[in-house]
């Protein structure tokens, strides 16, 4: 019989984050369909109310590793904590959220447990009592369904795969695991988490809308001049009014490195595409961006897509956007901002 472990790191306030609760929902579903045992392992400074959420999802046992050393994302301590949980819970299947903290150690954990790992799964099913999962290869260009016989099998679940689980119940069985932390596991000191300098916080994963700026914003326009300051005002004005998340094409993000005029609030963290992010938003608006394949692979999980480009033959026209407005983005966005008011 399979034994399903939901494994997560707790937020600073003790709760489970959104992706963790989505993963909890998936793990719960898998356990039910497989007729498996279901337990949870949580790592954090303190695990209330996260442990109550896991209990509400039906986790029969809770394995907790708590303490200030576990309140931060650090490979040495997180992998030690997760290993201790896995050794206690003896899972055959582990479901964990594909957030940066977990993604830093999950494969190392699989190696330690002599198991196998598949990251960023986007779906699962049970066929003839066997778990199969979906994930993307080649940067969202090929989707495959796969299964494994090796156990434990560790899986991280991509954000947005399933509605998040919510609930509150008193746990029935809690096992607090003490993890020994010799000096050798504390050679790294985490100084903190911060927004990149000059960038502000323009990456907003929970926003309804992704606004993508392309290199066209910095290129010479009809008058032969480039208008970078105006571009910055229009883009920031729009972000301000809509609270959209800001994405950028590689060409635009790279411009800064070459001593050319640059939009200072755009960094590589904003980059969408092959060598950038693959964000998830219900809607996306691309402006002054050509829509080339290495860019558009980053739009795999954007449902509704519109683009503004001067070129009717740009990539967006070829089945990549729902609507392409052949127009000057400077003029359109000025008017859009006006209509949005504020």
């Amino acid at each position: 019989m399979e034994n399903v472990l939901f494994l997560a790191c707790i937020e600073p306030d003790g709760s489970l984050g959104k992706t963790a609760r989505e993963t909890l929902a998936i793990a719960r579903q898998a356990a039910a369909e497989l007729g498996a045992e279901f337990c949870a392992g949580l790592i954090g400074e303190h695990c209330e109310p996260g442990s109550r959420t896991a209990a509400a999802a039906g986790c029969a046992a809770l394995y907790l590793v708590e303490g200030s050393a576990f309140g931060i994302s650090r490979y040495a301590t997180d992998s030690a904590a997760a290993e201790a949980i896995a050794r206690a819970a003896r899972p055959t299947l582990v479901f964990a959220p594909a957030v940066s903290r977990v993604s830093r150690f999950i494969a190392g954990l699989a190696q330690r447990l002599n198991g196998r790992v598949d990251t960023q799964i986007t779906g699962l099913a049970v066929h003839d009592g066997q778990l199969v999962v979906d994930r993307w290869f080649y940067r969202q260009r090929i989707e495959a369904t796969l299964t494994r016989t090796t156990r434990p099998w560790l899986l991280t679940v991509a954000p947005g795969t399933m509605p998040a689980f919510d609930g509150d119940a008193a746990p029935t069985r809690v096992e607090r695991i003490a993890v020994d932390l010799p000096e050798s596991l504390q050679r790294t000191r985490v100084e903190g988490v911060q927004a990149p300098p000059g960038a502000g916080q323009t990456v907003r994963p929970d926003a309804e809308l992704l606004f993508v700026a392309g290199a066209g914003w910095t290129k010479p326009q009809r008058d032969g001049q480039s208008h970078v300051e105006q571009a910055a005002q229009l883009i920031l004005g729009f972000l301000d009014r809509t609270q959209a998340s800001l994405g950028g094409s590689k060409s635009l993000v790279d411009v800064g490195g070459e001593g050319q005029p640059v939009l200072p609030f755009l960094t590589h963290l904003n980059q969408v595409g092959q060598t950038g992010a693959t964000p998830r938003h219900p809607k996306g608006l691309a402006t002054c961006c050509h829509g080339e394949e290495p860019h558009v692979v980053g739009w795999r999980f954007i449902n509704e897509r519109r683009a503004i480009n001067l070129d009717p033959n740009c990539g967006w026209a070829r089945g990549k956007a729902d609507v392409l407005y052949v127009a000057d983005a400077f003029a359109v966005m000025r008017k859009v901002n006006e209509l949005l008011g504020g």
Binding site: R141, A144, T145, L146, T149, K320, D322
Partner: peptide, 18 residues
Amino acid sequence: LRYCCAQAPRRRRETRIV
């Protein structure tokens, strides 16, 4: 490890060009 299937996404959007 066994792959059940692998495919490139077929969906092409009907782009309305305005």
